[in-house]
Simulated scan of single mutants.
Amino acid sequence: MHLLYADESGNTGDAAQTYFVLAGISLFERQGYWLANQLDNLAREINPADPSSIEFHGSPMFGGKGIWRKHMKADRCRIIREALKIFAYSHQSNRIFACVVDKTKISPNDPVEFSFEQLASRFDHYLSRLHKENNAQRGIIIFDKSTYETTIQGLATDFRTIGHKWGVLRNLSEVPLFLDSKASRLIQLADLIAYSIFRQYEHGDDDFFSIFHDRFDEVGGVKHGLCERL
Rank of each mutant, 00 (worst) to 15 (best):
P51R: 05
E45R: 15
M61P: 04
D40V: 12
R44F: 08
K65L: 06
R78V: 07
I79G: 03
C77A: 14
G63N: 13
N47S: 15
N41A: 15
H71L: 09
I67Q: 13
K73C: 06
C77S: 08
F62S: 05
H57L: 04
I54R: 04
I54F: 09
P60T: 02
E45L: 08
R69C: 01
G63E: 13
G66P: 06
R69L: 05
S52P: 07
D75C: 03
R44N: 10
N47H: 13
M72C: 06
G63W: 04
A74W: 08
I80E: 01
L42H: 11
P60F: 03
E45H: 14
W68L: 03
A43T: 09
A43P: 11
D50E: 12
C77F: 06
R76N: 10
P48D: 06
P60E: 01
W68D: 00
L42Y: 03
A74L: 10
G63P: 00
S59M: 13
N47F: 07
A43R: 08
I54E: 05
G58V: 01
R78D: 15
D75P: 03
C77R: 01
I80H: 05
N41W: 08
H57V: 01
P51K: 05
P60V: 03
S52H: 11
P48G: 10
K70P: 09
I67K: 06
L42A: 07
P48F: 07
I79N: 03
R76D: 03
R44E: 11
I54P: 10
D40I: 09
S53T: 15
E55G: 01
K70A: 13
S53H: 12
F56C: 09
P60I: 04
P60A: 05
F62L: 06
I79C: 02
G66F: 03
C77Q: 11
G63Q: 09
R78E: 12
E55I: 03
C77Y: 08
K73T: 13
N41Y: 12
N47T: 14
R69E: 09
A43Q: 07
I67H: 09
D50P: 00
R78Y: 04
N47E: 13
A43F: 06
W68P: 00
M61C: 07
K65I: 02
G64H: 04
M61A: 07
C77E: 11
K70N: 11
R44A: 07
I54Q: 02
S53V: 08
R76E: 01
F62H: 02
G63I: 01
G64P: 01
C77T: 10
F62I: 01
C77I: 06
G63S: 12
A74K: 11
S59P: 13
L42D: 09
W68E: 01
R78I: 05
I46C: 00
N47G: 11
S52V: 12
G64W: 01
G63K: 13
F56G: 08
F56L: 09
R69K: 14
S52W: 08
D50R: 07
I80W: 01
S59A: 15
G66H: 08
E45K: 15
